[in-house]
Design a protein around this nucleic acid. Structure first.
Lengths: 340, 340
DNA sequence: TGTAGTTGAGAATTCGTATTCTTGTGTTAT
DNA sequence: ATAACACAAGAATACGAATTCTCAACTACA
């Protein structure tokens, strides 16, 4: 059977209220009594029941992460692995835990919303934006439910969000390629409508604006295999690009394979850079230049802010927070005979 | 403010108990009243408070996953991404949710145990075994707390566990290499003491037992870079192996890079096979043969069993459940001129 | 010495739901 | 017709911890 405060109280010959006071560190309890209670709590290995605490104090000590899975799961997305483990790490200091749920395409939007909010299973939510899913956000705002968005909130006004500046990051990589002397730089993105992809294309274009370099934007579906196919196509062209910025590491891997299959050497025949700085980057072709989004830092800010909102401490005025990304330069963009 | 059963009761002019009965589908409530209550619940958008339900009914609707992170997080381990997303997917049908926590090396064993069990934050646990961490298990058993282990329970007796037969799987891949005509087959594993690695080495050895082929076991730390270094070493030997079974895809990637750097072509000069069948496999060198552990199936069994234990339904007698792995054969082991 | 003020701690209540206990009404059997 | 009984639904209680209310004992000050 479970040990309750009442049990402790009986054994320590005090009231249950006193046990509760000891637990909450109430100052006005005689040291002698406090020690006795603490001793017995130790002996009996007592821990308060979070369920009762939650009911009484209106806080469950849980934050929720709702991941939107496209069709067959998010199994292979290293981004989520990164995200989840970062959140868990970040939370391990606080008194919050992480509840992970998934929302399918559309139908279960409502149901996951119900489950997580109206039932008070979590105190707050972390949303991860991939497309523009505004109905959720609007509902959350209406109910004044604490949440922080990772990603670009688009036109949604008063939303707390944390994100990278994808435009700037993409501009930076692209500039890097320009600096390395590449003259025909392409961008391989996902199909239009995916916010990250669109933003990064915008950054790529911004970087090239002052230059003579043509804007070459290609599109492919996610995954290395799709990217490999796309790579084969654009690398077969007469005036093929001599460098490519790719939407993510997996796709870049695909491109690198396509390049190898076409007999193009990286970085001399083809410069290659991408985003996410996965562990893959260490391996691909002796090193793949990639933008490190600094997910741990991003998560740290997200979690801190969310907890602040939940605890109703002063919420920073700046509702949108940008985490700077940094470039991890590796061999795939270090053309021979070029010095910074 | 929150809508409670009492509010619904007042509006429907019934007692709170009746509302509760309607909710639990109690048969002996007049259809007319039931409909009225349901209508008002709908209007008011009522959902029961899980905190109160949990307190009352001794079930929180949560299962916990404690991941043991070696030092700096599990960020890059695709296995966990897979695991977590599979669990979430599997759970999305049930009325359970997933709570993910991490346990550091040793210290926080106790603390995570406290948090998750004594506080009744979760109804049951999924443990993932990488080494032999028996103290946790023993404590859980003593408290008769519902849990299922993913991995090999070693000598721990009465534990519910779900796992692949790593020995058999490894035997199968190795056999496959033999069948392909490779004659000098090595195994690259992690350092001794890691259960998966040891088991797979055992399977490798079992496969070679009837043959003339030497047993060549190498060890390296996890990660593609470490494997690449190790690969360089053993591929430089006079009598280098002509095929390698590698502990996981990431390490295999490292080996493949080492091979390329040494001018060895895969699969003709070097056969390569590994475990996990990550999305990487599609990409590496035009296809990497890998053992598919069927994590979704493994998770399905794990979750089903755990929920059975929690609900105290009849628990299958067979405490240890083996999920068959299957081999995904790709280019890296398809030597030219060899037919099955 | 008497009254006001302080303080430590027990009693009682609350959180929202599930469940048991109880009662009033209607049905069946003798 | 009345005792025995089924049954729907309200009243009351429990779950475990936090908090408010209350009171007794003790200090302080005139």
């Amino acid at each position: 059977m479970r040990v309750t405060q009442r049990d402790i109280a009986r054994l320590a010959k005090v009231s249950q209220a006193t046990v509760s006071r000891v637990l909450s560190g109430d100052a006005r309890v005689e040291p002698e009594i406090r020690d006795r209670v603490l001793r017995i709590m130790g002996e009996k290995n007592y821990k308060p029941d979070v369920r009762a605490q939650a009911l009484r104090s209106k806080k469950v000590g849980m934050i929720g992460l709702v991941i939107k899975r496209p069709q067959g799961g998010i199994s292979n997305d290293p981004f989520f692995a990164n995200l989840i483990s970062s959140i868990v790490d970040e939370l391990s200091g606080s008194d919050f835990h992480l509840c992970v749920d998934s929302a399918m395409s559309d139908f279960s939007h409502e149901s996951i919303y119900d489950e997580m909010l109206r039932t008070r299973r979590v105190d707050g939510l972390i949303l991860v934006e991939s497309e523009a899913s505004d109905d959720r956000i609007i509902r959350l705002q209406r109910d004044r439910f604490p949440f922080v968005l990772i990603g670009n909130p688009l036109h949604a006004g008063e939303v707390h969000s944390v994100d990278n500046d994808n435009v700037l990051a993409s501009e930076t990589v692209t500039r890097h390629l320009v600096d390395q002397g590449y003259t025909r730089i392409a961008f391989l993105g996902a199909k239009a409508g995916i916010t990250v992809s669109d933003d990064r294309i915008a950054g790529y274009q911004r970087a090239l604006r002052g230059t003579q370099i043509d804007h070459l934007v290609y599109h492919a579906n996610f995954g290395s295999e799709n990217a490999r196919c796309a790579g084969h196509e654009f690398l077969s062209q007469e005036d093929r690009p001599d460098a490519v910025v790719v939407l993510d590491d997996f796709m870049a891997l695909g491109v690198s394979i396509a390049a190898r299959e076409k007999g193009l050497s990286i970085p001399n025949d083809l410069g290659l850079a991408s985003f996410n700085d996965t562990s893959l980057c260490e391996a691909v072709g002796g090193g793949l230049t990639s933008v490190n989004l600094n997910i741990p830092a991003l998560v740290k800010q997200t979690v801190e802010r969310l907890i602040n909102i939940i605890d109703e401490e002063e919420i920073p005025v700046n509702r949108r927070l940008i985490i700077p990304a940094k470039l991890s330069i590796r061999r795939s963009t270090m053309r021979e005979g070029v010095m910074r």
